[in-house]
Design a protein around this nucleic acid. Structure first.
Lengths: 341, 341
DNA sequence: GATTAGCACTCGATCGGTTTGAGTGCTAAC
DNA sequence: GTTAGCACTCAAACCGATCGAGTGCTAATC
């Protein structure tokens, strides 16, 4: 258990270090107007905090730096959520005022704004289509052998792919298939689609057309792709402006990760609702062991839709980022709830 | 005009420097088995080459480094196109064997492979839809007030966006509109679509439905978006492995550029057909004044479709990259020509 | 006349040593 | 319990010496 004074000193050190990126000495703390103790007293407390594992010393004659545990304590007990700056609220208003033509547009735009407001990297994962349902299915023939299959979800999400048409299937066959599929599948949630496809559609389809396995397989694949949420990144190079990432090698592994969507998905897997903070080694991936990831989920009518996240150095402005993510995720949830109806 | 010996020395220096990234001295050149002159002779020639502006000296007591002009001469007259390595041909075969479901899939996959084979950054711009035509238009209503508009090109390219439905338009109106548009617009190339929309469709549409300006505006916008070629990047972090880009600041401006699609498009604007090499400051953007960009166009049946490019340091393996791009662009042209039919 | 051996010279890189200064821990006085 | 005082530590900055890769020039050689 920390004394009031220890908490205040820890808080001051973390705040200072977040601002300056330099180890914080006892003198500079005692100079602060809200601190009434001499450097020597501070030093004693700092030694205790270090013993508890909340602070670290890069070397004996340097100031202190928060440890992962120190950041954790700070985030859990000390951080002041200043709320969102007037100016930032304004920027965000602009975002929501704009007409969003796509799902993708809105989400990627949100990512851009987030990275600009924070100067960190923003990651947005969405939308989960697991609970959305099929609105419309369409096959547009391009020529005798190939066609475009288009799947529209009730959220307005569109997925498409080129498919080849099996020999011996004519235009009217295709129309029949499309009609059948729309009849049987429209309104079915994606997570049930696969089983419905097998149980109800397969038999019926085989009555109309030969070689229908091919079509079924294609449909299944499309459904699976559709179910995969997409990742949007913005401000990937912002990490380069951080003094602790001057070294190219440190940065490389992080930037490499950004090119690997599956790794990012893994990072976001099974995050609980609300705001989550993962500090340094608390993250699953070694590449970002020197980074912190703050995430917030957004949803529509209680259905989880996706996650927005900010990745920055462990020395991140937690107060600002948490406030911002909280604000934005709630607004996005509202936006999408409205959109849903 | 260069003597045979000067050409050989220049070639040796460029080759060496490309391999080692270190300034090349006279001794190391004269040691090569195919060079029969003493370091002193080489030095004299090097001094002459420097006077001509083909070589540069970082400082008096260092070896020589090719200048932009030197690389230019090398690329224009000296580079040996070794052809594509057996192993790389194999990898590329694998690429073309795979079934491509989308346009996007094929192009982005090509980008990935290119960056892996070269260890540079690959940029693929495509496809130009300017000369492709509209295959199918579809409006899928989501609810009373919004719908998804879907445009399918004859290449299988799909563009979509959410639109809001003006008050007072019912489901059967929408069906009428869709039918009309498909009747009038199917088969029309995109670059003529806008004028046809105004001349033929507008009047007819106003007969059916009130408030049709909204729908027309939306269509126009979609067509313009569709016409915009897309940019695919891969291996954006490869530049970080180059010794001359150890400095974070140098790298930042390049990586920042990768996040700005319009800048990349600008870079690729109005490139002539075939292989193009832009060395250092020959590039339009200051951010890549220390890089070279090699591009190759691909087409289907003579219609230009897009461009593939490799961005690397000026100290790039020109022979390998040029061969590779030449090979791949030709294969892609074939692939898409077949696809077209 | 072209080539090359020889040599003085240049200059960045590296290495060891010194100095500086920010910061600490400990002790003793308040 | 707090703090002034002091010895101590150690990275960073500074400095000069040395090293060595590479050059340009000149004179000897082929």
């Amino acid at each position: 258990m920390l004394s009031e004074r220890q908490r205040m000193i820890l808080s001051a050190i973390v705040d200072d270090y977040i601002r300056s990126a330099e180890p914080v000495g006892s003198r500079s703390i005692s100079k602060r107007s809200d601190v009434l103790f001499s450097p020597a007293t501070i030093r004693n407390e700092m030694a205790d905090l270090e013993e508890m594992g909340l602070l670290e010393q890069p070397h004996t004659s340097a100031g202190r730096v928060p440890s992962i545990k120190g950041y954790r304590y700070y985030v859990d007990h000390l951080v002041r959520l200043g709320g969102v700056k007037e100016q930032d609220v304004h920027t965000l208003r602009g975002f929501f005022a704009e007409k969003m033509m796509h799902w993708e547009g809105a989400v990627s735009h949100a990512a851009t704004i987030l990275s600009q407001l924070t100067n960190y990297t923003s990651i947005v994962l969405g939308p989960e289509t697991f609970h959305t349902s099929l609105k419309h299915f369409q096959l547009v023939p391009l020529n005798e052998t190939s066609a475009v299959a288009i799947i529209v979800a009730n959220t307005g999400h569109v997925e498409h792919r080129n498919v080849s048409i099996p020999e011996g299937i004519g235009m009217d066959d295709i129309q029949k298939i499309v009609n059948l599929l729309n009849d049987k599948l429209a309104g079915i949630p994606f997570f049930r689609l696969k089983s419905v496809l097998h149980s109800e559609v397969a038999k019926e389809l085989s009555r109309y057309v030969d070689h229908c396995e091919h079509i079924l397989a294609m449909l299944e694949q499309s459904i699976e792709d559709e179910a995969e949420p997409k990742v949007f990144l913005s401000g990937t190079t912002n990490i380069l402006t951080q003094p602790e990432f001057k070294d190219v090698d440190k940065v490389k592994s992080i930037l490499d990760m950004f090119e690997e969507t599956p790794k990012i998905m893994q990072l976001f897997q099974s995050l609980p609702d609300g705001i989550q903070v993962r500090i340094g080694t608390e993250n699953a991936l070694e590449a970002i062991n020197q980074c912190s990831l703050i995430t917030a989920t957004f949803s529509a009518d209680g259905q989880p839709l996706g996650t927005i996240g900010i990745l920055g150095p462990t020395r991140m402005d937690y107060g600002k980022v948490i406030s911002l993510l909280d604000y934005l995720s709630k607004d996005m949830s509202q936006l999408y709830s409205r959109w849903y109806k």
